[in-house]
Design a protein around this nucleic acid. Structure first.
Lengths: 118, 118
DNA sequence: AAACTGTTTGAGTAGTTATATAACAGAGGC
DNA sequence: GCCTCTGTTATATAACTACTCAAACAGTTT
């Protein structure tokens, strides 16, 4: 199955769904132009509310990773084609920070601060 | 003043306080070995509750950026000496991602996912 | 028309955030 | 020793936000 979710996890369901899609795109399981499974299908197969899935999809749209139109579904954009490369760079940076005694949480707060400023 | 806070902002106060300290360390205004102003002083001068400041300090401790002991206060660790370099690398990465059509939010979610896995 | 798709609206619940007050306990100066 | 500084812990509470759910709505495709 493409998308997975852990109901016992402390990270929000919609965030897990979004993360699944990003990972799927970063590993090439989903490609630009591909349509994501419909929100209702995902909701049914993950035993999650429709709204929760749509919330995840909308976040991905806000990031520019998918386009959405009713009747047509959610489609992966060209921007997603570089996810793999960027994801690798993020891993490298986390590793480098770690070597300097800095946690991923510190990095996360830096990135978040930059992200929120726009 | 070293620490600043915007009561009207939508980001939590304790997070703003923590971010102030990180920025202060990244710009060399605070150095390893320096003691942060006492939580009570900060609370009074920012018109914020003591708990709010301590929450920020504790987060920084969890990240390994400060050590805390009662009677002595919160002291910046050696790890903080590399904050400037890492912060610059984060800015570079955000820039590179942006050039590929990826938002800082996408990056943030990657980093957060890595950070939460530990 | 029928069967899909996302969109919108509304609402309930749970968790987070910030506050306040108080008592506790280690560290250091006098 | 005593006083005052420091963070720590406990308890309570109000306001707010996040999260989830349900049902009706409106384009798109077949």
């Amino acid at each position: 199955m493409l998308l997975r979710v852990d109901h016992a996890s402390d990270t929000p369901l919609f965030e897990q769904v979004a993360a699944s899609v990003r990972t799927g795109a970063a590993t090439g399981r989903i490609r630009p132009g591909d349509r994501l499974p419909s929100a209702r299908d995902v909701a049914a197969s993950l035993d999650v509310n429709l709204h929760t899935v749509l919330r995840a999809y909308q976040d991905l749209r806000d990031e520019g990773l998918v386009t959405m139109r009713r009747g047509r579904g959610a489609v992966l954009t060209e921007a997603a084609s570089h996810l793999e490369q960027i994801h690798r760079e993020v891993l490298d940076l986390v590793e480098r920070a770690r070597a300097l005694g800095l946690s991923a949480h510190t990095l996360a707060s830096f990135v978040k601060e930059i992200a929120d400023d726009r």
